[in-house]
């Protein structure tokens, strides 16, 4: 009788362990999916390098200068928005890169 109870308990515990591993695997798969989606989203982005952002910043600033000659307030506001956007883009690149390529971030 004692042996039967012991076997039953051990059996239940083994079932619990195996079943919980399945749920753990699902969590790992879900995490992997998120990482892959994130990577795929980066690949779809229009601006993917520091150089591209700087070039676009210059182009937009030139366009603003030539288009808003009569409205100084709008001109400086738009340039501020463009510069903030460019800085944020660069910051995003730095955060995305690993410590191998981004020494400032880690040390």
């Amino acid at each position: 009788m004692e042996l039967l109870v012991a076997l039953l308990v051990v059996g239940i515990l083994l079932y619990v362990m195996i079943a919980s591993r399945k749920s753990g695997l699902d969590t790992a798969e879900s995490h992997l999916d998120r990482v892959q989606d994130e990577k795929a989203a980066w690949e779809d982005e229009r601006f993917v390098s520091y150089g591209q952002v700087q070039q676009t910043r210059e182009e937009l600033n030139t366009a603003i200068d030539s288009s808003f000659t009569g409205n100084e307030e709008h001109r400086s506001l738009l340039k501020e928005i463009v510069n903030e956007w460019a800085n944020l883009r660069v910051k995003t690149f730095e955060e995305r890169r690993s410590w191998v390529r981004s020494p400032k971030k880690e040390e």
């Binding site: 695997l25 790992a28 992997l32």
Partner: peptide, 20 residues
């Protein structure tokens, strides 16, 4: 045996280069 065997396994698995 498993991708969730240790924290290190889960971390390398998240790179997407390995399968279960």
């Amino acid at each position: 045996w498993l991708v969730i065997g240790t924290p290190a396994s889960s971390i390398v698995y998240s790179s997407g280069m390995l399968e279960s």
